[in-house]
């Protein structure tokens, strides 16, 4: 017949190639092609999403070294770690005693002072200066700032009070001030991060 060309073409995509259960041989190649394209499309999400994460220069600033020899008992300083404030406080014996006198079970975020400091350096309370409520910088590290009802830190934003172990005692914050990873490399040098 002279019209074979069109007739063969019109057979494509019709059910002629289908076996009894309605599955065509061509289905396989269609599903495989769409799946491969789908996997490829999903893979492009990886760079699109991860470009938003901290870049290498931001991550490179992720340790801070501090000399704490100048901080007298009862004093505190604010340092910067990952562009956020860190409080380094040299606790007085009275403050340590006050922190240890608290019934840990009664705390919102139960932790002892010992768990929040390093052995042999129990007088050094090193915490992030970032309120665990919504991230304000609490007051109390600098001279003359209010230290709240529990003698530690006070966040003025929504009124969170922290005690002398920087544990949350009153107000909306859910957790104690975070203790960052740090080590004493010498008796007076701390590396945070």
């Amino acid at each position: 017949m002279a019209t074979t060309g069109t007739e063969e073409l019109s057979g494509i995509g019709s059910d002629e190639g289908a076996s009894g259960d309605g599955v065509r041989r061509r289905d396989f190649i269609e599903i495989a092609a769409v799946s491969a394209a789908g996997v490829g499309a999903l893979a492009t999400l990886v760079p699109l999403v991860s470009q938003m994460a901290p870049s290498k220069d931001v991550l490179a600033e992720s340790t801070t070294e501090l000399d704490v020899s100048a901080i007298e008992t009862g004093q505190a300083i604010k340092a910067v770690f990952r562009k956020q404030p860190v409080f380094v406080r040299n606790l007085t014996p009275a403050e340590i005693e006050a922190a240890n006198a608290v019934d840990v079970g009664s705390l919102r975020d139960p932790q002892t002072l010992a768990e929040r400091t390093k052995e042999g350096h129990e007088n050094w309370l090193i915490t992030m200066g970032v309120c665990t409520h919504l991230g304000c910088v609490p007051l109390g590290a600098a001279e003359g700032e209010p230290r709240g009802e529990f003698g530690g830190y006070f966040c003025p934003c929504h009124g969170s009070h922290y005690d002398t172990a920087a544990r949350i005692r009153k107000g909306p914050a859910p957790l104690n001030l975070e203790v960052p990873e740090y080590t004493f490399t010498t008796d007076t040098t701390v590396v945070i991060g």
Binding site: M52, A53, P54, R82, K83, H133, G135
Partner: peptide, 24 residues
């Protein structure tokens, strides 16, 4: 910081949104 309140994924999500540990 509101996103940081979401359980489990909150904190990494916040860092991802900011591209850092604080706004910069």
């Amino acid at each position: 910081g509101l996103f940081g309140a979401i359980p489990f994924v909150g904190e990494p999500l916040q860092v991802w949104l900011l591209g850092g540990f604080a706004p910069d």
